[in-house]
Simulated assay, not measured.
Amino acid sequence: PNGIAKALGASGSSAHDMADDNASAHAASGEQLTSLLVFRAGSSQPKAVPLGLVTRLEEIATDKIELSNGRYMVQYREQLMPLVQMAGVEVRSQGSQPILVFADDGRSMGLVVDEIIDIVEERLNIEVAGSQDGILGSAVIKGQATEVIDVGHFLPMAFADWFSRKEMRPSASAQSVLLVDDSAFFRNMLAPVLKAAGYKVRTAPNAQEGLAALRS
């Protein structure tokens, strides 16, 4: 886990680049797989998030974590980045703290986790709907029941207006949904939510590719 985070942090590579490379390889082979980051947070139960949503994996020295206005924050790339804790997760007081960074349109949020386990390729099939806030549901990932988190639940904990800055109302009136958004972040976040609701989802980064998808 530490090696994954440090390699990404040191090289400047982003998780988006890794997800795009993996997706391209599997698209060529016809496999419908999703790159997933598996981690632990608050319990021994593994959790997962689509890798395409994660901007970076970081391990922040605990002496860089500050408490301001009752919230944990860290100075990250010349801006203050709020740290959000999942239920049962405590910010460490010494050593380094694993953090998943989510960023879009100039804003960043750090999700505090206990341990980064692995990056895997799996068919994302949420078999049991979640009953807790922040959990989309459970899926079998590498042979183990794994909770798939709802990133959209945590983002407003960092910035209350995170979603109000963008119009995001894809139609759910049909069994097949075409999601068009110029932000890869929002496409990757919404697609698993729609899949969990039972829809077949296709995505496109712009209107031209969206029209091409409708005609295909």
Rank of each mutant, 00 (worst) to 15 (best):
Y76T: 03
F159W: 12
R107Q: 12
E122Y: 00
I126P: 08
A23C: 03
G70D: 13
N188P: 05
G134S: 11
E58Y: 01
P46L: 06
Q85C: 13
V74Y: 11
L190I: 10
N2E: 14
Q85N: 08
E59H: 10
F159V: 03
N206D: 15
V84D: 06
Q32F: 01
G143S: 09
T203Q: 15
V112F: 07
M157F: 03
L8I: 14
H153V: 06
V89R: 06
V148E: 09
E58R: 11
E121K: 11
S43W: 05
G9V: 00
L179T: 01
G12V: 04
G137K: 07
P98T: 10
Q45V: 04
V54L: 05
I141Y: 00
I141Q: 04
A213Q: 14
L124A: 13
A87W: 00
I99A: 04
F154L: 03
F39K: 07
G210P: 04
S108H: 00
V128Y: 06
E66W: 06
S216K: 15
K142C: 02
G143W: 07
Y72I: 00
S35Q: 11
H16W: 14
R107V: 08
R169L: 11
G9K: 03
A129H: 07
A129M: 01
A15H: 03
K166C: 11
V74D: 04
L51E: 14
E58Q: 15
P1Y: 05
E31T: 07
G143E: 04
A160V: 05
I149F: 06
L190H: 03
D104R: 07
A197P: 02
I65S: 11
A213E: 15
G137S: 10
F102I: 09
D21V: 14
P98Y: 02
P205S: 14
D133M: 08
